[in-house]
Amino acid sequence: MATAHSKTAARLMISPAVLLLLGWMLVPLGMTIYFSLLRYNLLMPGMESFTGLDNYRYFLTDPAFYAAFKNTLLLVGGVLLITTVGGVLLALLLDQDFWGQGIVRILTIAPFFVMPTVSALVWKNMFMNPVNGLFAYLFQALGLEPYDWLGSAPLFSIIWMVSWTWLPFATLILLTALQSLDREQIEAAEMDGAGALARFFYITVPHLSRAATVVVLIETIFLLSVFAEILVTTNGGPGYASTNITYLVYAQSLLQFDVGGGAAGGIVAVVLANIVAIFLMRMIGKNLDA
């Protein structure tokens, strides 16, 4: 299939996509790196000056960064824990034989299609509001004090909302993987005398581990960039209690107009994301030619 003619054509046809992505990646990233070395505030135009690594020093030693870093880890870790454990359980449940499988599947996947701003506002107002929210009503009905979710446990509340979006994703992927498991393999194990538990741990779990890894890695990429949910619910507060790195960089850049500091933060975020990306790419790369 490879002649010199078709190779030239291939190069030509691939180049628009490559050039666009190259431009999209290199130009802004280069600018971010450049800005991160400047003292540059949009409120004081024309005052830019080179400061070396100062921005990084300020950003990394700022207590806000420490808080945001911790929150980012908790947010990503918390959502991953809830969605993968919950996803495995849900996938196992949905894989069972029951009436109305199609409808239940649709109900389960639905939250994934809800845009982040809608999901955040619905949870914030209609469920977590300490006066009018359904949770407050539920607590009262049980004789408990209504709880101010976003005020008292902002990070947990956000983890809750984000998990609601991503649990269906994890479930769907794990369910797909589960259904691709060769039934004959299970039957062979049954013939070999493996009980239900043994079959689960020796056949199902190894089969699911690959899909679970994919879920973890892909969710991580998206979860590192959680933004809208924070913006419309807590604005990162109270204090920095629900600020993650993405939101911190946004606040520094577009709320305080500190371009230099924001850029340094952006580069820090890129470095952190790359650490995850390397693992994810290894995973996907392995399957590329399979």
Binding site: A17, V18, L21, W24, M25, V27, P28, L29, M31, T32, F35, I221, L224, S225, F227, I245, T246, V249, Y250, S253, L254, V259, G262, A263, G265, G266, I267, A269, V270, L272, A273, N274, V276, A277, L280, M281, I284, G285, L288
Partner: peptide, 18 residues
């Protein structure tokens, strides 16, 4: 292909300002 994928992993805040 892998490189294209890697651009997807670039966190948006990294290029927000530019």
């Amino acid at each position: 292909l892998m490189w294209m994928l890697s651009t997807k992993m670039l966190p948006p805040v990294g290029v927000l300002i530019p």
